[in-house]
Amino acid sequence: MLNIDLYINSAGIISGAGNNMNGNFLQNIPQYSANALPAVEPDYKEYIPVMQLRRMSRAVRMGVVAAKTAMQQAGIEKPDAMCVGSAYGCLQDTETFLGKMTEQDEQMLTPTAFIQSTHNTVAGQIALLANCNGHNLTYVHRGHSFEHAIIDAKLYLQQHPGEHLLVGAIEEQTANSIKALQYAGATAKEHYAPGDVMAGSLHAPVCGEGAAFFSITQQPLSEKSIHIAGLDIFRADEQTAFEKISTFANNNSPFDVFVSGMNGEKRNHAFYRRLGEEIFKYTPRTTFKQFCGEYPVAASFATGMLFHRIFPGIDASRVKNIVLVNNHCEYYSCWKFTL
């Protein structure tokens, strides 16, 4: 287990379940019948000059506006440093350049899409717009990309106490990425409703996307701040994961709510049900992937949901200690949050 000990002071969230730019985040439970949940994007013109907006792909727009929202909510013009996670990076621009390169047999190409295809484009653009010269890292490690950004934040703050960090994650879906994930059996072909996800009857998960950014400091900035009190991450098979989650629970209990990263796929549902029955037997349980879908940085959506004190089906007034268990394929994370 990692000694994380950080505070989240604000959140900017864009997801398939809506965004938190207009104050009614998750007030209405989203309804859909789909195999992929595109993010509900805000009116970007309110945040980014139109000229700049035109050049930005969806990944960059989502990331920049989620980051701006997190900064505004925390009352800062620019952070001292930032740490970002994104497993797939800027897919749309990558596909644009790749498509033209193959169609045109490597000739008559223009640079714009290539320039914006690098994985650090989102962090670079946030730094550029906020004029932030500080530490700036992008982690691209599959289902642990967001968690590694959190660890980096911890390491940075240890050496730069008192500074104010922006930490976030971004993932975009495209028609081709959904096609590739379906081909690999990692995304559903059939259309499903939120109830199907919660019932755990899916052949493969519904594909999600989104951006979530947070203001992070070593001390809480207001009564809204929530504490990341513990984090453990590991890549493991189900049985080993079960044992490690059990150890995490023993070391960090009691909990008032168990937030489950169950993605609706049958086997995944059975795994989380077992966690609920054997490890978190007396803890009320709630889920979030029926809102946001499955994607490598979905733990960032859950973190945003917890920051907003949203615990579907549970009396939020009684919640103080939260355990979040998430997985994306064999990448697991266990989080302890306190309100």
Binding site: G89, L137, T138
Partner: peptide, 18 residues
């Protein structure tokens, strides 16, 4: 612990730093 950093041409200097 296994991680991947991607910050264009400075990527592997950052992995040594972390």
């Amino acid at each position: 612990f296994v991680t991947t950093i991607s910050t264009a041409c400075s990527s592997s200097a950052n992995s040594i730093m972390m």
